[in-house]
């Protein structure tokens, strides 16, 4: 007993001394590398203001905050903001839509881009590959606002290309912008169109990293191209695909505000299938003007979102140690 306590004391002494010394060494390190520390200052200050200073504001979820009060003199109201949200019919709708849309995007996007990568890998005509890649990447660079215009030229009730074709074929025209049931499909389409190209190119880079000798050995054994794809390419790019999928699943609570708001905007008719947490928070903050209410929903999203990111990263780390984020 005594031995252990003295042992602890012995341990404590140098540790605290070391800590004290550490403070000194930090200052000494700053003095020694003053240039390096100075040039990092803009980034350090930026992150301090826009990230670290923002964390305390999260407590307004439990307050009756308004733009005239501050976080110190606002009234504490406990979980009332959360209650209000979870009792409303929107809580389930927006949470479900966020997760469901994201899962749809992940599944369809991965399938299409892996397929594209595998196909591009089979081609040998250089200029054709280059041309195809360049065209596939183009949608990735334009903003969702422009995408919504392009979409409008197809779906516009009056002038849209698709309605024109429907009428030519003898069908009724469809009021696309009033049909909530069709928009999950439309969004999935738009998502594939915009981001499959870039993902295909990333997967193609993973395929290019595969050792050629594997294919040569398989070819000598008489494997066809299809067999080589099935038994060499796909198993070897699977880790990359799974890592990217897992990390995407981790972010399933975070909707793509830029996409949804650019495509749907304030068209309330479509909210039933397309309204997500992020757009709901945006309206609560900017249109209704209730920061506390918006924060409560945002906090719910952040906490669940963080657990998901952490969990998916843990799974990734377990199976693909070098693919994990942290």
């Amino acid at each position: 007993m005594q031995k252990s306590s003295s042992y602890l004391q012995f341990q404590n002494g140098p540790v605290s001394k070391k800590k004290k010394k550490r403070g000194n060494t930090f200052l000494r390190d700053v003095r020694k590398n003053i240039f390096s520390y100075l040039i990092a200052l803009p980034a350090l200050i930026y992150v301090f203001i826009y990230s670290y200073c923002s964390y305390p504001y999260m407590i307004i979820a439990f307050q009756e905050y308004s733009f005239r009060t501050n976080i110190f003199n606002s009234k504490w109201i406990g979980f009332k903001n959360f209650e209000f949200f979870f009792k409303s019919k929107y809580a389930y709708t927006v949470t479900f839509n966020t997760i469901y849309l994201n899962l749809l995007f992940i599944i369809t996007g991965t399938l299409v881009s892996v397929l594209l990568a595998l196909m591009l890998n089979e081609l040998r005509c250089r200029w054709f590959i280059k041309f195809a890649q360049s065209s596939m990447l183009f949608p990735n660079y334009i903003s969702w606002v422009v995408v919504s215009y392009i979409l409008f030229s197809f779906l516009s009730t009056e002038y849209g290309l698709i309605n024109k074709i429907l009428i030519a074929l003898g069908y009724e025209r469809i009021n696309w912008y009033l049909r909530a049931d069709l928009w999950r499909g439309i969004l999935v389409f738009a998502r594939i169109w915009k981001s499959s190209g870039i993902n295909a190119v990333i997967f193609l880079a993973a395929i290019a990293g595969i050792d050629d000798s594997q294919y040569e050995a398989a070819a000598i054994d008489g494997a066809t191209r299809l067999q080589q794809t099935m038994h060499i390419t796909i198993p070897l790019i699977m880790p990359t695909v799974l890592i990217m999928t897992l990390l995407a699943v981790g972010k399933v609570m975070y909707g793509d505000f830029g996409m949804i708001y650019a495509m749907i905007g304030d068209n309330g008719v479509l909210y039933r299938t397309t309204d997500i947490i992020d757009t709901y928070v945006f309206r609560a903050l900017r249109q209704i003007g209730d920061p506390s209410q918006a924060m409560a929903i945002g906090l719910f999203q952040s906490v669940v979102g963080f657990i998901m990111v952490y969990g998916s990263n843990k799974i990734t780390k377990r199976f693909f140690p070098e693919g994990a984020l942290f």
């Binding site: 992150v47 307004i60 903050l285 920061p291 952040s302 963080f306 990111v309």
Partner: peptide, 16 residues
């Protein structure tokens, strides 16, 4: 890195 994995969300950012 911490700020990359844990973000406080839109509302605190707006208030900042």
């Amino acid at each position: 890195f911490i700020t990359m994995i844990f973000s406080s969300g839109v509302v605190p950012w707006y208030l900042i």
